[in-house]
């Protein structure tokens, strides 16, 4: 079979399985899976920046929160309906990534990590500071009238799963197309050897900025859908922990592999779900997984698989 055929078969199969899951799984797990798919889209966006372009950001919570607040506040403050609110969330995520990128991409490596962390922290504090418009610490509930795209009531389990699936399917297709495109190849070139890329005629700043904006668009989309599907917008989603989560998912599943974030998000979600049933110290699990990954599996699960034979994995 051709490489292209294998890729289509694998990713099509994953989508088919996810589609079938809503009819096969009990409601509790189906709801979990809907959440996992939205978080996976967030992590896919993170993977575009980190896994493919080599930009290790610690500030993606800002882009996720911008998507979430962009969509949520459009409903809460100006009573927009779901579709324009979601569009607002997407735009907010991308614009925030562009603005942060314009400044942060003047630095690299550790400085880039700290700068993105600081911008995200400032964003979180701004949400607290402007509590009158954002709901501050307590956040706010997205009312039902703003959660009915195309007449689908996202408060119900069925439509909620369908919406999460649609988002995930589009994001996955987009991600595959991106990394197999010419621009995807240039992103990899930036990660592998920036100096050489420049001497092949590419402007590293522009390439990285565009990759970061696409990444922010994904994070914004995930944030907007999160608000729509689960009906709550809160400052905790803008905290550092929410910048660490997509990094964790991506590292676990495999950085620079399209399906890595989904696998990482799914495993981590259930790991925490099970651990929090046993102990309140679920953050301990997160910490331990981070340390173990960095020590023993820096390429992640699918990354290791790709090194051991599945070289075609995009």
């Amino acid at each position: 079979m051709t490489e292209r055929g294998k890729i289509l078969l694998l990713h099509g199969g994953v989508l088919l399985a996810l589609f079938a899951a809503q009819y096969l799984l009990p409601a509790y797990h189906a709801n979990n899976l809907a959440r996992i798919m939205v978080l996976a889209v967030y992590a896919m966006g993170y993977n575009i920046a980190f896994g493919y372009t080599g930009l290790l950001s610690l500030g993606h919570a800002l882009f996720f929160a911008m998507g979430m607040y962009g969509a949520g506040m459009a409903v809460w403050l100006v009573e927009w309906t779901a579709l324009p609110a979601i569009a607002m969330g997407l735009a907010a995520g991308a614009v925030a990534a562009g603005a942060v990128g314009l400044l942060a991409l003047r630095t690299a490596g550790v400085s880039f990590m700290i700068v993105t962390l600081m911008f995200a922290q400032a964003g979180y504090l701004l949400i607290l500071y402007f509590a009158r418009y954002t709901g501050g610490d307590e956040g706010f509930v997205v009312e039902a009238f703003g959660r009915r795209p195309f007449g689908l009531d996202l408060v119900q389990d069925g439509p909620r799963y369908a919406a999460a699936f649609c988002l995930f399917a589009v994001a996955l297709a987009g991600n595959l197309a991106l990394v197999r495109s010419r621009f995807g190849r240039v992103m990899l070139a930036m990660r592998e050897n920036e100096a050489r890329s420049r001497m092949l005629g590419y402007n590293p700043f522009r390439v990285k900025l565009l990759a970061l904006v696409i990444s922010g668009l994904y994070a914004g989309a995930a944030g907007a859908f999160y608000a729509m599907l689960f009906g709550y917008v809160g400052a905790s989603f803008a905290m550092v922990q929410y910048s660490i989560l997509p990094l964790l998912y991506t590292l676990l599943g495999g950085a620079g592999v399209v399906l890595g974030p989904l696998l990482g998000a799914g495993l981590m979600f259930y790991l925490i779900d099970i651990a929090s049933g046993l102990t309140s110290a679920y953050l301990m699990v997160v910490g331990a997984v981070l340390v173990v990954l960095v020590l023993f599996a820096p390429k992640g699960l699918l990354g290791a698989l790709r090194e051991r034979g599945l070289k075609w994995l995009p």
């Binding site: 990899l188 100096a195 092949l200």
Partner: peptide, 18 residues
């Protein structure tokens, strides 16, 4: 100075597509 972890094809393709 090449892209050591990319296939030979991609190394040259990066130049050609530029």
């Amino acid at each position: 100075s090449i892209f050591p972890r990319l296939p030979v094809f991609d190394n040259v393709a990066l130049a050609a597509q530029s």
